[in-house]
Design a protein around this nucleic acid. Sequence first.
DNA 1: GTATGTGAAACCGTTCACAGCA
DNA 2: TGCTGTGAACGGTTTCACATAC
Lengths: 207, 207
Amino acid sequence: MKIPAIAISRLSVYARHLARLKGKGTEIISSGRLADMCGVNPAQIRKDLGYFGDFGVRGVGYYVQELLFEIRKILGSDQQWRLGLVGVGNLGLALLKHREFTNNGYTFVAVFDKRAKKIGIEINRLKVQPLEAINYAVEKKGMEIGVIAVKPVLAQEVADILIRAGIHGILNFSPVQIECPMHVSIENVDFSIKLEKLCYKIKSQRF
Amino acid sequence: MKIPAIAISRLSVYARHLARLKGKGTEIISSGRLADMCGVNPAQIRKDLGYFGDFGVRGVGYYVQELLFEIRKILGSDQQWRLGLVGVGNLGLALLKHREFTNNGYTFVAVFDKRAKKIGIEINRLKVQPLEAINYAVEKKGMEIGVIAVKPVLAQEVADILIRAGIHGILNFSPVQIECPMHVSIENVDFSIKLEKLCYKIKSQRF
DNA sequence: GTATGTGAAACCGTTCACAGCA
DNA sequence: TGCTGTGAACGGTTTCACATAC
């Protein structure tokens, strides 16, 4: 079956709300109530879940804990993922210390920078290494995901090194389109585009 | 005419490539060549531009400089936007110093934090202020956009203050759905969702 | 001849509406 | 009765294909 990419993003949102419900001790939730919380249509939720299995009970709803478990399994957030950060500028440091990353099954196993003056600095018990060390980290430390937080001009070069080293996925914070073979997955986080979109919306509101 | 929101994001991408072409001295570009660079269909570009006017010349293509000017006008990136940052944690500081923001028509006019120990610290010639100062910044300094970089539990509270103060738009880096009246525009930048999507894609690739 | 602008067609995702089941 | 699971209808976006203009 063809699963729309956007359905995956919604699963993340569902998981977030389910985690909150679980924390509050709620045991059962209907697609209708969950939909209200997430701001989507109830059928949307049922369809999204339907791509992956039958997780609900007719006439009852979904068991919060069970559904959360299943969604985590689908997304892979039940497993440990090993990240490598490239670029220890302000943004890179912020990501390294970011709770959402470190609390949820993600571990930074290595940190890299191209600038000689950054090499050897220790952050969060990790020594900053030169780009040449990327190969070793992928092969020996099982680094699976590369997080690119370097200046735009360096982004493609860094991506190429990661790809040649055998990385599985790239999370790119640089505002450039990265060329990438099909077997490597990539996701872009692009502040500027979001900000420009926001400005457009504000302008349009004003008529 | 109904303009799809995603078309706006694509305009940002076009603008980026046009800026590069302009820098290289290229004067004319066809939708076909630009489409290759951006990784989209040529008709897509023509349709997107068609929502806003006739910017091309049949049999010739688009004048790079002129088209860039027009897109900037559409997006509002030709004007100066005044931002306020809320939350001077690692991420907030990274945003404050981020080139993509400071180089492209965006200015931070004020910085806020809820934590007493942060108040008064000076960053980039701006003193960190308490949340109570948000009102003044909106009314007297013309702060139009609030950038939320606080912990998830505080995000809605901060948003409410910004909204009550009369902010026009919110760029939210916190992983929560923010409740927001329709006249206030909002864009979310959500790392965790992107990372979870990436992990799902990697898992799927492996079959 | 060449590349834009644009209706029409194809495609994809969302919502409806109801059958199926606890 | 109540809520899920899902085929069908709907609506919106993308792509095609060609008339139009340089």
